[in-house]
Design a protein around this nucleic acid. Sequence first.
DNA 1: TGTACATCAGTGAACGCGCGTTCACTGATGTAC
DNA 2: TGTACATCAGTGAACGCGCGTTCACTGATGTAC
Lengths: 229, 229
Amino acid sequence: MEKMMTAGPDAAQARRRQRNARGEGARLSDEIVSAALAIIERTGTDEAVTLRAVAREIGIAAPSIYPHFADADEIVTAVVARVFGELTEAVRRGGETGDDPVNRLVGGCQAYVTFGLDHPARYRVLFSERESSLTRVAQYCTPVVIEPGERPVLEFGAESFSILVQALQNCVDAGASASTDVVEDSVAIWVGLHGLVSLRTTLPRFPWPDGIDEFVRGVVLSLAKVGVH
Amino acid sequence: MEKMMTAGPDAAQARRRQRNARGEGARLSDEIVSAALAIIERTGTDEAVTLRAVAREIGIAAPSIYPHFADADEIVTAVVARVFGELTEAVRRGGETGDDPVNRLVGGCQAYVTFGLDHPARYRVLFSERESSLTRVAQYCTPVVIEPGERPVLEFGAESFSILVQALQNCVDAGASASTDVVEDSVAIWVGLHGLVSLRTTLPRFPWPDGIDEFVRGVVLSLAKVGVH
DNA sequence: TGTACATCAGTGAACGCGCGTTCACTGATGTAC
DNA sequence: TGTACATCAGTGAACGCGCGTTCACTGATGTAC
């Protein structure tokens, strides 16, 4: 374990910050989450998110965090909530541009992968080991039920997964996909997208195929059973 | 970041160990790697692999590690080398049982996933962030060239990947797969397998489909372009 | 309109902990003569 | 066969560091009377 780089506050940050006005103390919560995200982006890992590091980043005293978060895990959890929102939004936008259900499905999947490859540290924290407290995260997200009455998906990230399921269902409804179990096939697609982002960012020196969007298209079409008769 | 559990040596370990005989000092290297692996299995993460924790585990003084490893990262790297060997062996055995090329391909892939799900901590360390020093790892593994003269794969894990490529090539040769680029399609398969292991172990509460072997079979057949005309 | 008080939004010093790393050392075992 | 010496395989105390957490505190702002 190499010595942690003391990425102390620079001169600008070290200048005494102005304290929040009365009743606006909650603003510091957002600042803490942003600081944690900045640390994750800079170091590439959430391991560097310590109470003291976050405090340094903002220019506050370490104990000032306690009224807002019980520990560093809670801060990381809040970061995960925020980043999942960003990812969901990216997938939603990516799935709006296509001119037919298949292209909208592919577009959403490509947006997912693009988000992951463009923001590897952000993406990685979503599935960090630190989230042993994944149940905790549930409080931040609305439970989404995929199929009425069964298979409730209470996990975090459920919203972007349900977008995927709906996109595949639209392909089936349009007669473009031969899928007979859209949830199971959506799981397969999600798993493929995640594996791609995860491995590409972890093993950049592997000779990955060129043309990531085309690669994703091929994988998604196979798993979505498009063009299978 | 919760306080690290002081998983000190139990009474048995605390008893003074017998020092290695002259000329057999290198044995401690293996003990150190085994101890690190034990810590990873127990805690579920390689973050807990510190020089002092490893020394405690074996019952030696912390500085005794230095003649064998420069730092904890080197120890983890050696663990990765060992576990990659285990994984490769499991995949090889899994790919020997099938009665035709397709079943051998599927068998190897199922063995990969089974290894990952049965040993989540071991699997996870293979793709740990800690391996920023992935180049370092290269010294432990023989470079494997997938196609003569091009696309050299120098990364760690190349051996198990090349088994996969060969298994798919055998399907193509037997006329069972419509793949026109076995390397690219092998990448897709690998990515899918990895994504499955990674997500299943990270999000155990997600409603995963039952029958993992059948699920893997379906994904692999789709991506291997088996049954596509 | 004045004033005592409560509350909010933090601060700063201190503590004990596990960590990596250094240093001089110890004691058994082999080897040259 | 005896003995001085070198080497091997570690040990144990000490150091400074960043960490989480506690404690009593400060100073501005609102509020009851």
